[in-house]
């Protein structure tokens, strides 16, 4: 019984000492990043079956796979890779204390993300003109489910980026305080990694 009560007492003592000396939790940033990596790992398990379903659907309906627009999708791949670079550049810039360069890089990131999404929508319209829709068969269902969820992740990323960009413009991030950008960057880069797999496996195979 004494042991059960002793543990909270020790914790409380340490907490009050930390508060008294204005200490900060030393591992909070790493904990947040670890949580993000675990979330991204769960996202891997979400996207993997969808990609595998596309591989299977392609063998069932190869004629529909042949209608995919490789040139326009390749352009979209370059745009998403560039968007990922802009995030990395924004983080690199703020690490060096260059706030303006960070802000510009984040704006370019947002533009690239939105252009990627718009081009994806034009691809959807083009495919629908060929009769490929969510209900047209296994290929359409697998393709639109996978790319639709990826597009949703892009939109979520753009929304998150709008918040980050707003903070960046309002001077929240500095050379010594830019974790918000770094944290968002992990998510956006992951969306890019997923697209690398989708582009190769779904479009180029």
């Amino acid at each position: 019984m004494q042991q059960e009560t002793a543990v909270p007492a020790v914790v409380a003592t340490h907490a009050s000492e930390a508060h008294a000396h204005h200490e900060v939790v030393p591992f909070s940033k790493n904990n947040s990043k670890f949580a993000m990596w675990l979330f991204l790992a769960s996202e891997v398990m979400f996207f993997t079956p969808l990609i595998a379903a596309n591989v299977w659907a392609r063998t069932v309906q190869p004629e529909e796979h042949a209608l995919l627009n490789i040139p326009i999708t390749s352009l979209n791949s370059f745009i998403l890779l560039a968007s990922s670079y802009f995030v990395a550049r924004a983080i690199g810039a703020i690490r060096n204390g260059n706030v303006i360069k960070m802000q510009r890089s984040l704006v370019l990131n947002l533009v690239a993300g939105l252009v990627f999404f718009l081009i994806m929508m034009t691809e959807y319209v083009e495919l629908s003109h060929h009769g490929i829709t969510l209900n047209s068969g296994p290929f359409g269902f697998a393709f639109f489910t996978l790319t639709g969820f990826h597009g949703l992740h892009v939109l979520i990323g753009c929304t998150w980026l709008t918040i980050v960009l707003n903070k960046a413009i309002n001077g929240v991030y500095t050379k010594d305080n830019y974790f918000g950008v770094e944290f968002y960057g992990l998510y956006w880069h992951f969306v890019d990694v997923v697209w690398i797999f989708i582009f190769t496996i779904v479009y180029l195979f």
Binding site: V24, V25, P26, F27, S28, K29, N30, S32, F78, L81, A82, S84, Y85, A88, R89, G92, A93, R95, N96, V172, D176, N177, Y178, F179, G180, F183
Partner: peptide, 27 residues
């Protein structure tokens, strides 16, 4: 934000130049 970016161990990271080279390699 300030808690999250508390002074921790010395962090290593790639430079801006490395990011550009990586982007070129990806393209």
């Amino acid at each position: 934000e300030t808690i999250a970016h508390a002074p921790e161990h010395e962090e290593k990271h790639a430079s801006e130049g490395t990011f550009f080279v990586v982007f070129g390699a990806l393209a």
